[in-house]
C-alpha cells in the first residue's frame, strides 16, 4: 500500500514537472500559428495524414462547428496540442463543416476560439467510402477521434474529456 502511494506521488511529480516545461515552449507556438485560411482536402489527400510512419503520435479529431458535443470537447484537444507538443504528439482537427460555410462559419470560429491546432476541411462526397476506410466501425457520427502512431491505432466514436483523452493518449506514448 505504502509502495503504491510513493509510486503515485512520483507519478504526479513527473506530470507537474513535465507540464511546466511544456508551457514555456507552447508560448512561442501561439505567436506563430495565426490561422486565417483553412486548407480543403479530399479523402485521397487526407489519407497520407492518417497513416504516417514517423515517430509522432497523431490525434485526429473529426468535428464541425455545428456539432455541439464536438465544440464542447475541443478545449481538451487544444490542451493536448499544447501540453504534448514536446512529446511528439500532433493534433489535427478535421472539420466536416459544410464547404459553403467555411468563410462564414468555420474561419470565424477558429479565430474566435483562437484554435492553435491544425485545422483542415475534409470535403469529399463519397462519404460511404472514406468513413469505412478511416475505420470499419465508424458509423459516421461525430465527434470521432483517431489516435495512431507507427505501432498502434485506435478509433473512437465518442466524446472525450481531457482526462479520458490523456489516458488514451498515454497508452500510445513511451513505448
Amino acid at each position: 500500500m505504502m509502495k503504491l502511494k510513493v509510486f503515485y506521488f512520483l507519478f504526479l511529480l513527473g506530470v507537474v514537472f513535465s507540464c511546466k516545461n511544456e508551457k514555456e515552449t507552447a508560448k512561442t507556438v501561439v505567436a506563430e500559428n495565426k490561422q486565417s485560411t483553412v486548407v480543403t482536402y479530399n479523402y485521397s489527400e487526407l489519407k497520407p495524414l492518417l497513416e504516417k510512419n514517423d515517430d509522432k503520435t497523431y490525434v485526429i479529431n473529426f468535428w464541425a462547428t455545428w456539432c455541439g458535443p464536438c465544440v464542447k470537447e475541443l478545449p481538451a484537444f487544444e490542451k493536448i496540442n499544447k501540453e504534448y507538443a514536446d512529446k511528439n504528439v500532433e493534433v489535427i482537427l478535421v472539420s466536416l463543416d459544410f464547404p459553403k460555410q467555411v468563410e462564414k462559419k468555420l474561419i470565424p470560429f477558429i479565430e474566435k476560439k483562437n484554435l492553435q491546432s491544425k485545422v483542415i476541411l475534409l470535403d469529399d462526397v463519397n462519404e460511404d467510402v472514406w468513413i469505412k476506410a478511416i475505420d470499419t466501425t465508424w458509423s459516421g457520427a461525430i465527434p470521432a477521434t483517431l489516435i495512431y502512431n507507427k505501432n498502434k491505432r485506435t478509433f473512437y466514436e465518442q466524446s472525450f474529456e481531457y482526462e479520458t483523452l490523456t489516458n488514451e493518449l498515454k497508452t500510445f506514448l513511451n513505448k
Binding site: 507519478f11 513527473g14 466501425t137 479520458t164 489516458n167 488514451e168 497508452t171 506514448l173
Partner: peptide, 26 residues
Amino acid sequence: MKITKAILLLCVFALTAFTIKTDTEA
C-alpha cells in the same frame, strides 16, 4: 534518472488505465 522513472511510471499508469470501448455493435 528522474525522467526515466517518470516515463516508467507513466508507462505503468498507461497500462493500468481503463480502455474505452465503443459500442457500435449493438
